[in-house]
Design a protein around this nucleic acid. Structure first.
Length: 591
RNA sequence: GGGGUCGUAGUUCAGUUGGUUAGAACGCCGGCCUGUCACGCCGGAGGUCGCGAGUUCGAGUCUCGUCGACCCCGCCA
């Protein structure tokens, strides 16, 4: 009954045996996926990281092994010695790469038993998220998660290989660093040796990599863990991984070419998929105008069109009011949705509220012509003009929003994405990379009643826009860029400020006094005075990138031990309470 | 901080206008079976209906609260 110590030495994996090895002896080890006892013969599907091989144990030829095989249950760990044999004609399993052979077992050892697992260790098992995370080590046995983590490994290997070949060096930066203003909420770590003071976990290695440029390393990278204490989403975890890159002396063009080469190598080496640089580019302003969002999915059209001039000619009250108040009227044409019911249209209108809007107008083009609830106030000519502007064909449904530009864009931009998903407009095979350039440097935060950095406080302004710091800070363009893949931001970066006077301008635009700037970023300001080269960089969200490559809906599927939406680790039960003595040592008191 | 979906056997789910002993499938346990691969056949065990109050003669079902998972808005330089 007792499991034995490992008595055999493994010779092959469960994924490699083929007809060429017929007649050879093999020793396999792994987990029992399933066993089928037919009485005189037992079949065992044996699984390891490399695949599944069927083991046959015959009562007559190996009576001892056959008796032992009767005790096998799912997830038992076993060792089998046997001979590779061709399966009898008609019993091959085309679903398995190893399906034309099996291993005729002569010797069987149970290396360990297993409790009945709380869920089946197989891909098509339907399991709640709670259970998966509680037993993550069992979840991770499932083939698709193993494939995801192996993909992730190949991807980081490809990145390291490519960057190494291009003169980059990987440098580690501290995890215990200081809290800085701006940006996300920090995770704090109390300092025992400095009572009442705290380290912060890095939101990114931003300042360290810039200081490495000051230090003359010129080409740095790091597969870096980052921490942000913000609310979670399907694509956001409190700790996540970036491919962090910084370079000196490169023009933007040279830098983009380098990165496009890296993405190409990454997709080729990790996923065998073809990516062809150069990538498309779109300015932030054009992206907002045509797609309403700064991360447009360009795998399908359905672009936003401005209808303000036509709307001004109508007697539609909302149009007139919004236009008078400085608003705009824009629309999109959704293919094939003219048959939508009243309820479906109402639901779409409510969807606008999710993004700050009050509702959506609609217009249908059917065989009977154009219909819109606002039709009688618009006039035939104006309806036709709008339909023409939106290039509507029969069967199309137009969705129209009238509001401030800052509302219209997200309402239509997100309606566009949601409808495309519903109608399956985007090819799942396509890889549409897109650089978004010339982000604004600053935006006004009404709540904080000051300007905040759109990217971060070290982003260089477009040189020609520097004088605007004194007049119209919100008009300054940044030398910042995002890389978007199929409608998801996968990376973002910028050229950095490398002159102290510009950094001073930036800090004061952000409402930081000289004293505060000195207190919080004095080390950076001082460093900028010691011969800082022009430099810039980027960080790619590795988790998102891998999730897209693996066609997974959530980054949890490509992270070995992810956290729930409340930031909990259900397996280890983190976070947890700590002993009073630990708190005393840290001079902390819990309220 | 806000909106939404969900929580019933080990698992995934069903459960009628509130009414007898809460069902199914898979899994599990026992038996039979020599070419299965979702093996098959026979038999069996298994329930804090997330938790706590309330309404009611009676609550899986209705109400309130609470806990948890997921999706979204805010937030995430």
């Amino acid at each position: 009954m007792n499991p034995e110590p490992q008595p055999l030495s493994r010779t092959h994996t469960c994924g490699e045996l083929r007809p060429t090895q017929i007649g050879e002896e093999a020793v396999l080890m792994g987990w029992v996926q399933r066993s089928r006892n037919l009485g005189g013969v037992t079949f065992i599907d044996l699984r390891d990281r490399w695949g599944i091989t069927q083991v046959v144990v015959d009562q007559k030829r190996a009576p001892e092994a056959h008796e032992l095989a009767d005790r096998l249950r799912g997830e038992y760990v076993i060792a089998v010695r046997g001979t590779v044999e061709k399966r009898p004609a008609g019993t091959e399993n085309p679903a398995l790469p190893t399906g034309s052979i099996d291993v005729l077992g002569s010797e069987l050892h149970i290396l360990n038993e297993s409790k009945t697992p709380p869920f089946a260790v197989e891909d098509d098992a339907v399991i709640t998220e709670t259970l998966r995370l509680r037993y993550r080590y069992l979840d991770l046995r499932r083939p698709h998660l193993q494939a995801n983590l192996m993909l992730r490994h190949r991807a980081t290997m490809a990145v390291r290989r490519y960057l190494d070949q291009h003169g980059f060096i990987e440098i580690e930066t501290p995890m215990l660093t200081r809290s800085t203003p701006e940006g996300a909420r920090d995770f704090l770590v109390p300092s025992r040796l400095s009572p009442g003071k705290f380290y912060a976990l890095p939101q990114s290695p931003q300042l360290f990599k810039q200081l490495l440029m000051v230090a003359g390393y010129e080409r740095y990278f790091q597969i870096a863990r980052c921490f942000r204490d913000e609310d979670l989403r399907a694509d956001r975890q409190p700790e996540f991984t970036q491919i962090d890159i910084e370079t000196s002396f490169l023009t933007r063009e040279a830098f983009f070419a380098l990165l496009e080469g890296m993405i190409q190598a990454l997709f080729r080496d990790a996923a065998g998929r073809d990516v062809r640089p150069p990538f498309q580019r779109l300015s932030y302003a054009d992206a907002m105008d045509r797609y309403g969002v700064d991360n447009p999915d360009t795998r399908f059209g359905v672009e936003l069109r401005d209808l303000s001039d036509v709307a001004a000619l109508t007697e539609v009250k909302v149009f007139k009011e919004q236009l008078a108040a400085g608003g705009i009227v824009k629309g999109i044409a959704v293919p094939g949705c003219a048959g939508y019911s009243r309820k479906e249209l109402d639901d779409l209108g409510r969807l606008a509220a999710d993004f700050g809007g009050k509702g959506l107008f609609w217009m249908k083009r059917t065989a009977e012509g154009l219909q819109a609830p606002f039709g009688k106030h618009a006039g035939e000519g104006q309806l036709a003009a709008m339909a023409e502007r939106l290039a509507m064909v029969e069967g199309d449904l137009a969705l129209i929003a009238a509001d401030a530009p800052a509302i219209v864009a997200p309402v239509l931009g997100n309606a566009r994405k949601i409808m495309a998903q519903r109608l399956n407009l985007a090819s799942s095979e396509a890889l549409n990379f897109l650089w978004i350039t010339e982000f604004p440097l600053l935006e006004y935060d009404a709540e904080a009643r000051r300007y905040v950095a759109v990217h971060h406080p070290f982003t260089a302004p477009v040189e020609a826009d520097v004088p605007l710091f004194h007049s119209e800070p919100n008009k300054i363009r940044a030398q910042a860029y995002d890389l978007v893949l199929n409608g998801q931001e996968i990376g973002g970066g910028s050229r950095r400020i490398h002159r102290r006077e510009v950094q001073n301008l930036m800090f004061s635009a952000l409402g930081l006094s000289q004293e505060e700037a000195q207190e919080k970023f004095g080390f950076l300001l001082e460093a900028l005075e010691f011969g800082t080269p022009p430099h810039g960089g980027i960080a790619f969200g590795l988790d998102r990138l891998i999730a897209i490559m693996a066609r997974m809906p959530s980054i949890r599927e490509v992270i070995a031990f992810p956290k729930t939406q409340r930031g909990a680790d259900l397996m280890m039960n983190a976070p947890s309470a700590v002993e009073p003595a630990q708190l005393r040592e840290l001079n902390l008191q819990v309220r």
